[in-house]
Design a protein around this nucleic acid. Structure first.
Lengths: 195, 195, 195, 195
DNA sequence: CATGAATGAGTGTTCATTCAT
DNA sequence: GATGAATGAACACTCATTCAT
């Protein structure tokens, strides 16, 4: 079973690399299988369809990212410090796992049709990640460190600025290494949220 | 010639509607042609390929959006007021032309491969829109109303929060009408940017 | 429209030839299209699926066969003579259109799954043919020429013996030309049915 | 060896059930193996190919059916009585082993390609069954009970009417239990064959 | 300009068969 | 013998693009 699990992850990583680079519709199963030295048919022993592979991939990514954020949220520090660490960890993550973040933005957020079931058409696959953002915000409000404001605006502020920076970085627009921006981004977020 | 121009726009609008709803790769030329009561072949009299239609569409959208923002930028008021109007106009635009904004986010930002030529792989198609954002920021800094800070961070702040709100709205996550959020979003942006 | 109809029939005839010779599952769409000098894709302009082509084919066959039998049924003669003509016409039909009859037996009768819709899983596609057999029997009973007996037994007698002869002929088991058997088969049926 | 034989039969029975229900081409080896709790690979220890399994299955079926008919043929009674018993035994067999008869009709008779070798493309696999039908007919002729007539016509009469009844029964067209029809079918056959 | 039938390369998926364990 | 992961050829179907009318 361990082995089966390992193999699934290997397939996901291969898919992630290609999906993020070329997009879902421009990546063929046969490319994914070639890329990892496995036959086409064998992929179907682990995932029943290309779509299901895309779903498993986003699950994989968000869990990984959420784990890092969860660790920070559980820590004992001011919200200001938490935000700084959030941004820092996120920027490091982007650089270590660019294909995961690219996948999140370019495939997950843009191809609704792939991740919608009849019942569940939403963010459930990214829930773990979203939950951590939510915790960060609500804790800050509870502690009186953040001004009480509409949740969606606060949520959009944080994810929006991080997303946009990710995007600029992915497009090679930024002139410097992402890390350089950590403090400024963190301060901007904090200033906007604080009382 | 006038007529030719009109027809091109009609095709673009039909494409825009379908591309934004179903994505580029899930929309067929034949759907676009059916949707507007024109033959498949005739579309190729106006656009040499599906890709070129996608490019023309994004040009169409960004010009429309940029025009509105340019008007505000040209106005004579404080940056604070400009930001409020920016947000307001943008939110109205989303609601009046959801397919244009959806197209911008779901097709343009997510399908690099469609908008990259050999020489030019960037934002040139959205340049007009980006330029207005830039003007808003640099003018604010010049007038001493905004703190001097890295341009990319400021740019990400504005476009990020607006983008994220757009996204939440598109997913029907927001409980209220978008307009409700105008002031809070504008204030958040202003607070983050100001000295 | 006439043209479209003609083309549909050409496709059906090509399909009929191959389906009957090699079976449904051993015939590829590409073989059907090659066989008639048309591209694969074009077949799909006329039939939405391989299955639907199989359905249209059986309709085509049964209508053709039923037309011949109907003509006899409408004639003014004894049932004995009608049966003789039935058998005769049927045997001629087999020899002129072997692929149609082969299709009927080898594909239609043996591949339930192809011809079953959710609602209608039966012989509706062959109804016209069955109806003529039924008319022959019931008229004979009404005229007192046939003994009254269970309908299904009479039906099985007629279609069974003809089917079995068809089968032996198709397998090249028969030593003589089918026509030779006309009288003997007709007499056998008549004897079994008559009072 | 005994054990090997048993296992082969178990596999055949599993195959028979699925082939008859879904057809040869819609049944996968893996379904057959699941159905009997054995691994895919192991089936190949007993049968070298799917095709060979289909052949072994038809052998199995015809031997079983032939055995019953042989017993009757060996009995000491009039041909009329033999025919009645033939029909009766056959109808009982259908009801007890529907999958065997379905297999005979839907797979064996309709998929020539499966049962044709280079040398032998015929009924050799069903020979035992056919032989008993032949014996019934020729004995009847010898005893002067049946009119001398072409063998193939007589053969088609018997197998045709039984086959057609089988078919109607399989399609749930018959309104009554098959047994009800025994006498009428037997009489019809006898009447047609007798002097 | 307009039409829509025709093309054919390309893709996801299946499944009989093999073989290392 | 028994297992089931791995293979890869094959097939139904799609769709951007062309072109004769």
């Amino acid at each position: 079973m361990r082995k089966k699990f390992k193999k699934k992850n290997t397939i996901i990583l291969s898919a992630l690399k290609l999906f993020s680079k070329k997009g879902f519709y421009n990546t063929t199963i046969s490319e994914i299988s070639n890329n990892m030295g496995v036959s086409v048919g064998n992929i179907y022993n682990y995932f029943p369809s290309k779509k299901s592979l895309a779903k498993a991939s986003i699950k994989f990514v968000t869990e990984k990212l959420a784990a890092e954020l969860r660790y920070i949220n559980n820590g004992d520090m001011s919200q200001k410090e938490k935000i700084r660490q959030f941004v820092s960890v996120y920027f490091v993550f982007i650089q270590k796992n660019p294909e995961m973040i690219e996948y999140f933005f370019r495939v997950y957020l843009s191809n609704r049709e792939l991740f919608c079931d009849e019942e569940d058409c939403g963010f459930s696959l990214a829930k773990e990640f979203i939950d951590e953002i939510e915790r960060l915000i609500t804790t800050g409000v509870e502690y009186g460190e953040f001004k009480e404001r509409d949740f969606y605006v606060a949520f959009s502020l944080i994810t929006g600025i991080l997303g946009a920076m990710t995007f600029l970085n992915g497009e090679n627009v930024l002139e410097e290494n992402l890390n350089i921006y950590t403090d400024e981004v963190a301060n901007t977020i904090y200033k906007a949220l604080s009382c």
